[in-house]
Amino acid sequence: MAKKIESPCVSVCQLKGDLCIGCGRTVEEIGQWKAMKRPEKMKTVKRAEERLKKIEARQAGA
């Protein structure tokens, strides 16, 4: 059986526009999380990680 994909939520729910700067997910992704299948969750986690890297890079350059 495949391992469960845990939510990337870190309980720092702060929205900037439609993006949570705590986990990197969009409002839409957060709302759809429970209904997502494993492949969708994996893609969402990957996109969220990339978004957070961009946020961190911007903050480091500021």
Score class of each variant (00 low, 15 high):
E56L: 04
R38W: 02
S11M: 08
Q59M: 11
E28L: 05
G61H: 13
C20I: 03
A60P: 01
R58P: 00
C13A: 03
C23P: 07
A35Q: 13
T26H: 01
V12H: 11
C13M: 04
K53S: 09
G24Y: 12
K53R: 15
M36V: 03
R25E: 05
V27M: 10
K16V: 14
L19A: 00
E40A: 14
Q32P: 00
L52T: 07
V10G: 01
R58S: 10
Q32M: 11
M42D: 09
I5V: 15
C23A: 07
G17K: 07
E40T: 06
L19D: 04
E6C: 01
K54W: 02
R38N: 08
E50I: 04
L52H: 06
K3H: 07
C13V: 08
A2T: 12
M1A: 09
G61S: 15
M1Y: 08
K54G: 00
K4F: 07
R51T: 15
A2R: 13
Q59F: 03
K34Y: 06
K46E: 14
K16S: 11
Q32L: 13
K3F: 03
K41A: 05
E50Q: 14
S11I: 02
I21Y: 07
V12I: 12
V12Q: 09
K3I: 06
Q59V: 07
E56D: 11
C23Y: 11
K54D: 14
A60R: 14
I5F: 03
A35L: 02
C13T: 08
Q32D: 11
C9T: 08
G61K: 15
S11T: 06
I55N: 06
C9F: 11
K41C: 03
T26D: 01
E6V: 04
T26G: 02
K37P: 00
G24F: 10
K46H: 05
R58A: 12
S11D: 13
R58L: 12
K34V: 05
C13L: 01
C9D: 12
K41R: 15
L52I: 15
V45S: 03
V27C: 00
A2S: 14
E50L: 10
G24C: 06
A57W: 03
G22F: 10
M1W: 06
P39D: 14
C13Q: 05
L15Y: 15
E40D: 13
L52F: 03
T44H: 01
T44L: 00
P8M: 04
K37M: 03
G61P: 00
P39N: 11
T44Y: 01
R47Y: 02
E6T: 08
A57R: 13
C13D: 07
E40G: 05
M42Q: 15
A60S: 09
G22L: 06
C23M: 05
R25A: 02
R47Q: 14
P8N: 06
K43T: 07
R38S: 08
